[in-house]
């Protein structure tokens, strides 16, 4: 199964993703991956350091919004590039283990500094193969 794709012509100045997962854990991991790959070429990022995220929300959409926003927060707070995430969702609470390393402009091939996760077209839905989400980011 494809992890995610970029939706063309949805956001001229920005980037829209359609994300897939056979369950919610995988959907969240693939959404995080879309963010990671938009930020840098991951072949040059190593899993040197671990970070964890714990969140609760009223519903699964808010949980995804808060999870992805938390990744952007940590990216700036710690000047950090992520490479991998491992997500466990239980009802509307989330526990995630993430890994990556500090940004090094000499070593890493940087892409876009995502400003924010937007609510434009934002959705999480059940499909016959699992789950699908649409996330538009502001760059």
């Amino acid at each position: 199964m494809k992890k995610y794709k970029v939706l063309e012509d949805v956001a001229i100045a920005d980037i829209a993703f359609e994300i897939y997962g056979k369950n919610l854990n995988e959907l969240f991991e693939n959404a995080a991956l879309a963010i990671f790959e938009e930020s840098a070429d991951l072949s040059k990022v190593e899993n040197k350091e671990k970070k964890s995220i714990k969140l609760n929300a009223d519903n699964v959409e808010d949980l995804l919004y808060d999870f992805l926003s938390e990744i952007l927060f940590l990216k700036d707070k710690d000047s950090f590039l992520f490479k991998k995430s491992n997500v466990k969702i239980d009802k509307n609470s989330l526990k995630a283990e993430l890994s990556g390393e500090q940004i090094d402009r000499e070593k890493h091939e940087l892409r876009n500094d995502i400003k924010a996760i937007t609510l434009h077209m934002f959705k999480v839905e059940k499909t016959k193969d699992g789950y699908k989400a649409v996330v538009v980011v502001d760059v």
């Binding site: 952007l72 927060f73 700036d76 400003k115 924010a116 937007t118 502001d138």
Partner: peptide, 17 residues
Amino acid sequence: SRGFGHQIGTDYLRIFS
């Protein structure tokens, strides 16, 4: 305003919703 403004925007988008 860099990540500072982006976070304020994100925080208040959630509050205003």
